[in-house]
Design a protein around this nucleic acid. Structure first.
Lengths: 233, 233
DNA sequence: GTCGGTTATATCGATGAGGAAACAACGGCA
DNA sequence: TGCCGTTGTTTCCTCATCGATATAACCGAC
């Protein structure tokens, strides 16, 4: 079985952690109109759920407008503040999910030049500008396939751009997905660089295996990390 | 106090989750050469730690070479397999961390065209091609600042590229960081687009407030996510 | 005023993760 | 052969989280 990257997203505020579990509770309240029904539906105890809401509101401000007594016995609705919190959480989760799903190419190399948090990593594919860790020179550089932009090889040399990493490459294979395609690129190294582009781009650039193409990616979007976390201190 | 995005990274295999806590244990073993000393150093019980190792190895294969008896009573060292697992985890954490630290611009809009998982989102900044959710048309589009590439405005129109989102913009401000800079861009919308680029790029492109510049970012790297239905259903 | 379903609150119990302690087995080494 | 500091294993305990239950307070509708 394959190694499967996963995560638990959280939003912290004043020491309280808003988690996936809280999202479920709030959404159930929105759906059912009462904290009681929400807890029942989720098969959770009402008392704990109610206490959790109070605890969250201590840090995050009012999340649920609760009415005790009245028409239908009362009920609960979400505040606008609550909706914003849910939106923020959804965004975070979507981003994390995106990270775990996208292929990336990893190059092993050494930091041969440093300039603050930036640096140049020497790899068998050539030098790569990236954000480098300060603890060690022995690093790996990860290039996300959705961060690699392709350009027609005969286009003007891309000097006037903020993409500081540029590689002349040859298309070796195109792996078609639904509407996206992974373009495998030979950049004269052991590892192939992968670029995730739309099928539209494949057509526009008229990409077929064997074609020359210019691959670029930004320094700011490229991150190096230590090969082995140093056991220093 | 500010909302603080956080996460717990995990690597799953056969139902067992490798977490930050396991990383600490393995690294302590590497540092101290014995499971016993590692557990003591981390102020954990030896028995639990040993059981955890066995549990992990059940799914992930041998992680720790343990010798009972012998010179010095024995000891433990990490396997190559273990080092690779640690490397993979470090990479994942680095990516997640990067995500929580990078600014992004969020546009609200509606999906006006769909093509499988891709789509066009109409926003006040214009149409944006992105990966869109299938559940709703009411979305927000997040553009990571480290995914936005800048080009000299007088450069040839970028038709031959896989960056399908292109905006002619005006630099309104440049916020200098250490070696990176956030370039704030007016794209004729309420929200300013932020591009994170190196100081080198700022110089190369001779960027100053008021300048025209072409900002591009890829469809495959742009993700839309549902806006929570405020009070529907 | 009564009804009814809700929120609010306290107490007890179940569950699971991890710690504490004890002890056997191991195997180079003097 | 005995020593010593490991690994392996078991039993019992602690603690935190959550469910289960009971009870009171609430208030519009009838």
């Amino acid at each position: 079985m394959e190694l499967d990257a996963d995560f638990d997203a959280k939003l912290d505020k004043s020491g309280v952690r808003f988690t996936e579990r809280d999202v479920e509770l709030l959404e159930a309240i929105r759906e059912h109109g009462s904290l009681n029904k929400a807890a029942t539906e989720l098969e959770r105890s009402y008392s704990r759920s109610q206490q959790r809401i109070v605890e969250l509101e201590d840090s995050f401000g009012q999340l649920v407008k609760r009415q005790r007594g009245g028409s239908g016995g009362g009920g609960s609705t979400l505040t606008e503040n609550s909706e914003q919190l849910l939106g923020e959480f959804a965004r975070l989760e979507a981003e994390f999910t995106g990270l775990t799903e996208v292929e990336e190419t990893v190059f092993r190399g050494n930091v041969i030049y440093r300039d603050g948090e930036l640096g140049t990593v020497e790899t068998d594919a050539g030098d790569i500008r990236a954000i480098v860790p300060s603890v060690t020179d022995d690093v790996r550089v990860a290039v996300r396939s959705d961060a690699v932009t392709l350009h027609a090889a005969n286009s003007v040399p891309e000097t006037k751009t903020s993409a500081r990493n540029q590689f002349q490459s040859t298309v070796t294979d195109i792996v078609d997905g639904d509407r996206l395609a992974q373009v495998m690129l030979d950049i004269d190294a052991d590892t192939e660089l992968i670029a995730l582009v739309t099928q539209t781009s494949v057509k526009t650039l008229e990409l077929t295996p064997g074609d020359a193409v210019l691959a670029t990616f930004k320094t700011a979007g490229t991150r190096a990390y230590p090969v082995n976390p140093p056991y220093s201190e």
